[in-house]
Each structure stands twice: as C-alpha cells, then as structure tokens.
C-alpha cells in the first residue's frame, strides 16, 4: 500500500525577481547628498509656516501643505529619542543582503532639527543605550553621496 510519506513534494515554481530601477533623487535629496559628500554637512529644510526643520529634506511640508523653504545645517551631534538592538538578520534594502548582527539602531534628533532620523548606532548593547543619550555622526572618509556616507552615530560624553 502506498503510504503518505511517499507522496511527491508539491510542485513549486521558482522565479527569481530581477528588476532594475533608476530612482531620480529629486532636487532635495540631490542637494542633501551633494552637500554631505562635498562638505560633510547634514542639511535639513525649514517649513516657512510651522518652522519645523525637516530631515530628510523634501519639497512639501505635509503638516502645512506648503513648499518648504530655507536650508539649515543640522547636527552632526544629536540626541537619541528611541533605540533598539537588532538580533535578527534583516535585509538591507540598499544591498539586498542581510546586515551583520547584532547592531544598534536609533531615532536620532540632530541638533537643530525637528524630525528625528533613523540610523545605525555604534553602540549595540541595549544596557548601554538610553533615551536622551548624546551621539555624533561619523562620516566616511571617501564619501559617495548617499546615506551610507554617515557610517553610524557614536556615543559622546558632554
């Protein structure tokens, strides 16, 4: 008698997704990354109505539905407003490969900015991370004009 265990495996059809995209950075990201690459400055943009300094910079303040205005340098020092330590190999969307674990990640409110940004923290030990701690952006020597130019945020004493 045929047994269930002898049943053939159900058919799966493997298809690999290989799609190429060319994303236009747009005027705001372009300026942001150009500045980061050339001068190492991190720039935010100010809404003329609510006066919030937004990072990343963008064409429109969603809160006021108005065009953003003046460019403002922010950071490189900032305050951790949220933190975590990652123990699971999530995929890095920019490379398609998992990032080595464990590592620290945080929401960092750069000095002079309203919005906090996601980034990697040098410190990965949850016991050494706390809200309100001060950090500073560490930049690549040879910058390429992308978000990876900020390597991570390093804990600082003030």
């Amino acid at each position: 008698m045929k047994r269930n265990t002898e049943r053939e495996e159900l058919l799966r059809i493997p298809i690999q997704m290989k799609l190429q995209y060319r994303f236009p950075a747009g005027a705001h990201y372009e300026r942001f990354f150009r500045e980061l690459k050339k001068t190492g400055k991190i720039m935010g943009i100010k809404c003329p109505e609510c006066e919030r300094v937004l990072v990343p910079p963008r064409p429109v303040c969603g809160e006021c539905f108005t065009r953003t205005g003046e460019w403002v340098e922010v950071g490189p020092k900032g305050t951790v407003v949220a933190h975590t330590s990652i123990y699971f190999p999530f995929i890095d969307g920019s490379t398609g490969k998992p990032r080595p674990i464990p590592y620290g990640a945080g929401l960092i409110q750069l000095d002079g900015a309203y919005s906090a940004i996601n980034h990697i923290l040098e410190e990965g030990d949850p016991d050494k991370l706390h809200i309100g701690m001060r950090v500073e952006a560490m930049l690549k020597e040879k910058r390429e004009g992308n978000i990876g130019d900020i390597l991570y945020f390093k804990t600082i004493e003030e």
């Binding site: 236009p24 950075a25 747009g26 005027a27 705001h28 963008r58």
Partner: peptide, 12 residues
C-alpha cells in the same frame, strides 16, 4: 524621462 524632478514634485 522627467529626469531631475522626483515623483512627489511632479505630483505636487
């Protein structure tokens, strides 16, 4: 190709 202009800008 709208080139330099990004999607949010076009849509706005």
């Amino acid at each position: 190709d709208k080139g330099y202009e990004d999607i949010p800008e076009t849509v706005f």
